[in-house]
Nucleic acid binder design. Structure first.
Lengths: 229, 229
DNA sequence: AATAACATACATACTAGTTGGTATGTTAAG
DNA sequence: CTTAACATACCAACTAGTATGTATGTTATT
């Protein structure tokens, strides 16, 4: 027996139908925002009919919630949390620098903005259900970073005087803020500049070589400061 | 002759009508976003009729552009640029700290988010006219901060090794990023925490007391780092 | 193995409401 | 009297959502 996918494309494949709706819904929401996302546009993009959509999701909101939980939530998980866990032995600051540098800087990504921020910005005030789901994602993101930083502190690679959770929030705010600016500029150069400055700031979190005097560290090397003073 | 305002409320006062539409439009757009902003809701809020609105503005987009230029643009000007200019003699870092601390932390402000970011996030990808107007605002904001920082550098209060324009962008990203997080959390505490961390970072830009060795400076005192190591 | 019974997974056509926008009429101000 | 500043009524397009019908897949029965 061949798997349901490899056979001659079954006429009914509810899981696949649902997944296609989620993906197309995500794209439409990412483009237009949730409120302006058109159900008809999603259907047109998938060649799924309205009856099928409302069989799998009981309302537009329900579809939106599923998109957040099943599509949006994956983004920080894949881009941040998994890489951080995978590099358990290495210095978390190097890992974070790598992650930040790996955030897509292609024009279409920069211009579209971070889906998480897009949705949070639009919906958190309007729909508590959306907000809660988004906050869960933010929390997991922040805690993942904080955990990695604490690990770095016990390894001696991260300054002991930084407060992990606050620093994680700082980093997230920074990343999201620069993405907003880059999206508004509609210009990858803005984002690339942001990466440089974020990386510079990240380096300032490193513990000094031999941990002299309780882990103070200067704030040079960033793109915010000149390379040669 | 009494001024047009003090008389017994003239039946026709086009300037006032226009201004009321701008203000109500701003509030509606701030609440719902531009796309979902309802013309009818704006009319209901102002007791102005559709004919009057379309006499003053030729389309919804036109109204939106006017809102950006005449209402939104004032916000960073009033909150950032004017205070920075007014404190020409003082240390710009102190001025910036005061400005950041003065950003409203009332629940309704935090939950509504920064109107500039809201619009940028929603519209920059969709409507180039919107984007250009918003970018003008961001540019002026960034240049205002950069100018103040450079002034501080020649005064000797700001580290010489910081690149003013980059640092200004960093600060803006940070402020906007934290406002996004606070809006998503719908919680003023998140914003207040952000203020603390921003202020801490701002302090790290100060030139050392007697400008020893080319202006290096450590990054302590922030809320990101512990107060007593 | 054949088939009846049933539930799943859709498809089609429609509705009630809202949207931005307009055509045309009216009235106040100079 | 003229025209600037509205007011009213209306419209076509689009919205999410639904009622109803139908074809497919599964399961129980014989």
């Amino acid at each position: 027996m061949l798997s349901s996918r490899t056979r001659k494309r079954r006429l009914r494949d509810p899981e696949r139908t649902r997944e296609r709706l989620l993906q197309a819904g995500f794209r439409e929401v990412h483009r237009s925002g949730f409120q302006s996302a058109s159900i008809d546009a999603i259907l047109a993009a998938t060649n799924v009919t309205k009856g099928a959509l409302y069989y799998h999701f009981e309302s537009k909101e329900d579809l939106g919630h599923a998109i957040v939980e099943e599509v949006v939530a994956k983004l920080p998980r894949d881009r941040w949390l998994l890489p951080l866990q995978r590099s358990k032995d290495k210095d978390p600051i190097n890992a974070l620098i790598g992650i930040v540098r790996a955030i897509p800087a292609r024009p279409e990504d920069v211009r579209g903005g971070c889906p998480l921020v897009n949705l949070a910005q639009e919906m958190s005030q309007l729909d508590e259900q959306f907000r809660k789901r988004l906050e869960t994602i933010f929390r997991a993101w922040q805690e993942g970073i904080a955990t990695a930083l604490r690990r770095g502190q016990s390894q001696g690679t991260v300054r002991r005087d930084v407060v992990a959770s606050e620093t994680a929030g700082f980093l997230i705010a920074l990343v999201e803020g620069y993405q907003v600016l880059a999206k508004n500029a509609q210009d990858p150069k803005v984002w690339n500049g942001g990466i440089g400055n974020i990386v510079g700031w990240l380096r300032s979190l490193r513990a000094p070589r031999q941990s002299r005097r309780g882990g103070r560290r200067l704030m040079s090397k960033g793109r915010v400061v000149k390379k040669r003073q």
